[in-house]
């Protein structure tokens, strides 16, 4: 099943109309400033489960939206 994303301005559209954007979250356990920079630049949480993420509606309003999606099933849990 193809992923559908609900754009708050344009309505539900197929995922191919959007660009994926990640919200980098550096764990609090990393305290050193350089280590935090390294983590933000390269490391990924890559969760197996719900993740809050950003999508850009390239084919429509050209605005970012926030989405919560389960990466195991691609189920969209709530649109922000």
């Amino acid at each position: 099943m193809s992923l559908q994303i609900s754009c708050p301005h344009c309505g539900p559209r197929p995922v191919e109309e959007f660009l994926y954007g990640e919200i980098p979250v550096v764990p609090d356990s990393i305290t050193d400033a350089d280590a935090r920079d390294l983590d933000r630049a390269f490391m990924r949480n890559n969760p197996e489960g719900p993740q809050t993420e950003r999508w850009f509606h390239l084919f429509g309003c050209r605005r970012w939206l926030t989405l919560r999606r389960d990466t195991r099933t691609d189920e969209v849990m709530e649109a922000g």
Binding site: S2, P14, V15, E16, L19, Y20, Q51, T73, D74
Partner: peptide
């Protein structure tokens, strides 16, 4: 596929 996912789903696209 562009979005990270562990899903084995297939798409028509």
């Amino acid at each position: 596929d562009r979005q990270p996912s562990y899903s084995y789903g297939s798409t028509y696209h």
